[in-house]
Simulated assay, not measured.
Amino acid sequence: MKRNKKGMAILLVLLLACAAYFAYTQYETAAARRAAAQLTLSGNVDVREVSLAFRESDRIDSVLVDEGDTVKAGQVVATLDSKELQLGIQKLKSQIAAQQSAVDKLLNGNRPEDIRQAQANYDAAVSAAKNAAGVYNRTKQIYEDIQGVSRQELDTAQHDAAAKAATAEAAKQAWELAQNGARHEDIAAAQANLKALQDELAQEEYVLSQYVLTAPTDGVIRSRLLEPGDMASPSAPVFKLSILNKKWVRAYVKETDLGKIHEGQAAQVYIDSQPDTPIAGQIGYIADTAEFTPKTVQTDELRTALVYEVRVYVDDPQNVLRLGMPATVTIDLEGAK
């Protein structure tokens, strides 16, 4: 009886051992299947950054945002001291107003009062010329008939008549000029000068617009590099701006796994601070050229292998991903088939 119990116990132990071995092999098989169905990569977060600098060189007047501030596209973040430029613009506007008046005067022609005055001057000059001509004729007749005047008096009368006639001709031309108005060439020259001043004003106003630094896109101020009173220039950035609309994880894949992935394939991104909350991503870039494993990849078996860079792009509306942050990428290979 005891032997039967002992045999039963041994049999029971053997059955339990077999069951445990079967369960273990099933677990290992399932784990192997899961590993084969999923590719896991390690990488780091990359963020696009923009260096914001003024196009013009001048002293910084104000800095309106600090490090860590979120800014919107078009938001003013800094300004330059523009007092000198504004004074120059005001001077240009005064010159344009004066030149515009000159152009208007040429286009409108002379006033009726000016024309009538020119005509009156012409009439007076004609009368004076006729009187001087009469005096000369009478003096000449006396000189020829009775020689009652000297030769010098005759010459004086002749010269006076000629001068009054020339004055009358000049008055006539002035009257005609007043009637005809300005020449087309003079009007064109005045209009060209006006256009040159207007173009110069437009250029100065554009330069003034560059004295205001705005954010080119939505983002977060990562670095504030200059302060009010510093001299700004195109080569001296005022801010470093991180762009929020697209981030990616830079990872590396072995050549043996390269055929398992493709552009557009879905992926999940995990970070240490949120291990249970994956961020949905998509493979957007796979390098065409292999490279040696970077030092940031901490996998022993890959240290001497050639790998290919992979970029997994993600949307991060909550802004939880930071530049250089380590991340884990998982890719469902079964779903990709």
Rank of each mutant, 00 (worst) to 15 (best):
K105V: 02
I142P: 00
H184P: 13
K140R: 05
S101V: 07
K105P: 00
P112D: 15
Q100Y: 09
D186G: 06
N180W: 12
A124R: 10
N180K: 14
S94Q: 06
Q99K: 08
I89K: 03
E144G: 04
K140T: 05
I187H: 02
V103I: 04
K91V: 13
N108L: 01
E144F: 07
A166Y: 06
G181Y: 11
T156S: 11
Q158L: 09
S94Y: 07
A171T: 13
L92S: 15
T167C: 03
T139E: 00
N121W: 02
R151W: 04
A165Y: 06
A129L: 03
H159G: 08
A189T: 13
T156N: 15
N121R: 10
A189I: 09
A178K: 08
A118T: 05
Q119H: 02
E176D: 13
Q179W: 03
Q99E: 12
G181S: 15
V149C: 03
A168P: 05
K140W: 04
K172S: 12
R183N: 11
A178D: 06
H184L: 15
D114N: 08
I96C: 09
A129M: 08
K91R: 15
A162T: 12
A124L: 07
A168Q: 10
K172W: 03
A128Y: 02
A125G: 08
A178V: 11
T139R: 01
Q117F: 04
Q147W: 01
V126R: 00
Q173P: 06
S127K: 08
G109Q: 00
S94E: 14
A128E: 06
D114V: 07
Q179K: 15
Q117P: 03
L107D: 06
L177D: 12
D123G: 02
L154T: 04
A97G: 14
Q119N: 10
V103K: 02
K91Q: 12
I115A: 02
N108C: 00
T167V: 06
A174P: 01
V135A: 05
N180R: 15
W175P: 09
Q152E: 15
A163K: 04
Q95Y: 12
Q141K: 04
G134C: 02
A98M: 13
E153Q: 11
A166P: 11
Q152H: 12
E185F: 07
R151P: 11
A165W: 02
A178R: 04
Q119E: 07
V149F: 03
Q90D: 13
Q141R: 06
Q158K: 09
E176V: 15
A174Y: 01
T167A: 04
Y136Q: 15
Q173L: 09
A120K: 06
W175Q: 15
A102M: 11
E113P: 05
Q141M: 04
Y136H: 13
A102I: 13
I96L: 07
E113F: 03
R111H: 05
K130Y: 03
I146L: 10
N110H: 08
Q158T: 11
E176W: 08
E144I: 10
A132P: 00
Q117S: 10
E169Q: 10
A189G: 07
K91L: 14
N180S: 15
L107M: 09
G88K: 09
K93Q: 14
